[in-house]
């Protein structure tokens, strides 16, 4: 790879990172807290790319043969592959298809007492992770008879014939480590298309068999009060385990 190729690859990478940062599209690939490291990477790549291109032109005018010299191994050209994939396949993050690949996550035991749920300002929004954690580990059963608002995507499953599995992915670094968080939501409403994003006001349905006696996959269930289809996914499509 010669010098102009190297500068071009670095500039392209830096530009596409900057674009992902401006559009917020990076949130489909990595956790939100990667924003600052990604800004750092984009800035360094663009500075290096410009500096490299300028030095290359300067050297070439002094010594025409300098542009032929190797500035890095040919394997470096592969760095434009992620860009080509981004443009040609337009990946849209983890969706319903990804949910069936991995077992859903069950929050580990939480020993701190849970705060009471504040319902004074209307239906409180709750992370799917917190909902599962309260459902399974709260001895005070703070979820009982309280309507809370969850946001996630629809995954249809034969285990919930009268509803769907409301699914949100928990991502700690990048989408490749995503693990689904799922609540089985029962509803009177019409069936929803797989992969639709919904905001669901739900009431926890206490389990028939106590969770601790369940052998195998633990399923947390809820009854829908209202399910609203939302046109777009939220800006931060994934939940963080922190």
């Amino acid at each position: 790879m010669n010098r102009s190729g190297r500068s071009a690859v670095m500039l392209l990478l830096g530009t596409i990172l900057a674009r992902l940062l401006f559009s917020g599209g990076y949130g489909w690939f990595v956790q939100q807290r990667m924003r600052i490291p990604l800004i750092f990477a984009a800035v360094v790549l663009i500075i290096f790319g410009i500096h490299d291109a300028v030095t290359g032109v300067r050297q070439e005018s002094a010594d025409p043969l300098s542009s032929k010299r190797s500035a890095g191994p040919g394997v470096g050209w592969l760095l434009i592959l992620p860009l080509l994939v981004l443009v040609s396949i337009a990946p849209t993050g983890l969706g319903a298809a990804a949910a069936s690949r991995v077992d859903a996550y069950t929050p580990t035991e939480e020993t701190d007492p849970f705060d009471p749920i504040d319902t004074s300002a209307g239906v409180p929004e709750m992370r799917v992770f917190d909902f599962l954690e309260r459902a399974i580990w709260d001895n005070q059963q703070s979820l009982e008879d309280v309507t809370v608002r969850l946001e996630g995507l629809v995954v249809n499953d034969s285990s919930v014939p009268d509803g769907f599995k409301l699914t949100r992915f928990m991502v700690s670094c990048c989408a490749a480590d995503g693990i689904p968080l799922q609540v089985s939501v029962h509803t009177d409403g019409p069936p929803l298309e797989e992969g639709t994003w919904v905001i669901a006001d739900v009431v926890w349905r206490p389990p028939e068999i106590p969770y601790k006696d369940v052998d195998g996959e633990l399923i947390v269930e809820a009854d829908a009060v209202q399910v609203t289809v939302v046109p777009d996914a939220p800006n931060d499509p994934y939940e963080s385990p922190y």
């Binding site: 690939f29 992620p82 994939v85 981004l86 990946p91 849209t92 983890l94």
Partner: peptide
Amino acid sequence: RLWATLFVS
């Protein structure tokens, strides 16, 4: 699409 998502991530 899923492959592309995983690869790009």
